[in-house]
Design a binder for these strands. Structure first.
Lengths: 247, 247
DNA sequence: CCTTGACCCTCCCGCGACGGGAGGGTGCAT
DNA sequence: ATGCACCCTCCCGTCGCGGGAGGGTCAAGG
């Protein structure tokens, strides 16, 4: 009925050291201790450890797992969606780095030397610098964004753009399938969009996100960018963002 | 001619702290110091920092960058190939985790609860355990392999299989294009195969790899596995491996 | 000549999720 | 009584810096 660490380790395939760690941070504390101080796990503890293993397989941080297990479904969903955004970002970034790496290897095979342009790619992230500054220069969000983006390399920008394209695609697909912008699925994509901004640029609150949504329609250049992808998409995106902000 | 850390930071977009760090580990040491102890970087130092930035964009570890910069082309290629293997592995793994995550989210949306089988997938990695042990049980390589694989989860196995499939694909494609197994491109894929084994199972030397290559032909079950993908592929793979081992 | 402010220096702690080891106690079989 | 497998609690190390404390340096302005 009560298992010692070694037994638990064999049953769960978690290392004894990991069990110690989970105990010390309060993620999974054994229900009891023997007279001599041995950790004693009950079957309920084992179930919790199984759940932890599962969430670890999704590469959630231990902190997130604590949150996810703390209260039922409601919060769990949010944590998983956030994790999805993180993983998708990593996927795009890895793809971009691999592409850069392959270019480099090709240059080696061809015995040529690399130029600076080859090294850093054609995209010039400072292109819109002046404009953005004039518009948002004195906002806090802009400062944070500047702070972060100045450390991005070519691969980061490529990854960011790829991810943005994916999200735009998903909006366009939903719109094409005539899923209303007030549907949960549209709001889910809007949430991914928010997290995308959150991670790549600055902490974007739902309110701030809603303000951005309005601007996508109000500013003709943003609107044109969306609408050339599909007619009415700017309005669709705005509404999905509003739906997400209010749910 | 001589730049202080702040200037270098602005020129290279590396943080001052990073410059200190590179100095302290000996990656990029400034050519001089001022009387008062200020780091003074020459233009040659700046060039080296550019190279470091570039390799960092490929996500090489600082240690690998030291190696890559230490001696010219010969070693650089090896480092890049190893990095390619690592990134590809991460790509596959991330894809697998994302798939698992999406399954989980779908289960949430459908309001169903997850079964253990859904959680851990259909693949049973212990399927071949007895056989493998009978064959290689007393080898050092097998022990290390056991040590490592017992910590793998469903997503790892899926990622490993996906990566193996990619490599097999590349062999098949080269064979289909009648690229000789002695070609550098075939040997490159063989090297990726070796690194695949190296990372997922145990440190595989080129000699050991060559032995495995011979076995792929000698053992009818291995051979059949390759040849059902494409006739003569087992021999092709073996020869590519031998080419790689000898170059 | 002195102060101010921007810059520079050298430690040193912290992150995340443990791995690994030292130094020492426990529990059961021989 | 001894051996051996198992358990415990610290504590250091990983990787690439971020951030801060505590203190020196340098040119400009009062």
């Amino acid at each position: 009925m009560a298992f010692k660490v070694g037994e638990v380790s064999r049953l769960t395939r978690l290392s004894v050291r990991a069990l110690h760690h989970y105990d010390s941070i309060g993620l999974v504390k054994p229900s009891g201790r023997s007279a001599s101080g041995y950790r004693l796990y009950t079957e309920r503890d084992l179930e919790r450890l199984q759940e932890v293993s599962f969430y670890r397989a999704l590469e959630l941080s231990l902190e997130d797992i604590v949150r996810a297990l703390a209260d039922p479904a409601s919060d769990r969903r949010r944590v998983l969606l956030a994790q999805r955004a993180l993983l998708e970002q990593r996927l795009e970034k890895t793809r971009a780095v691999l592409a850069l790496l392959d270019d480099t290897l090709r240059a080696f095979d061809g015995e040529r030397t690399m130029t600076t342009e080859e090294m850093f790619g054609a995209f010039d992230p400072t292109e819109y610098e002046e404009e953005a500054e004039a518009r948002w220069g004195d906002t806090e969000a802009y400062r944070i964004s500047q702070e972060r983006t100045k450390r991005y390399g070519a691969a980061d920008w490529a990854a960011m753009k790829a991810e943005a394209a994916t999200i735009l695609d998903d909006f366009a697909t939903l719109a094409a399938e005539e899923v209303p912008a007030t549907d949960d699925r549209a709001a889910d994509v809007a949430e991914r969009h928010r997290l995308h901004l959150y991670r790549w640029f600055y902490p974007t609150s739902r309110e701030h996100h809603a303000a951005l949504g309005r601007m996508y329609v109000a500013d003709p250049r943003f609107a044109a960018n969306y609408d050339q992808r599909r007619a009415g998409l700017a309005v669709y995106v705005r509404d999905a963002i509003l739906t997400n902000a209010l749910r």
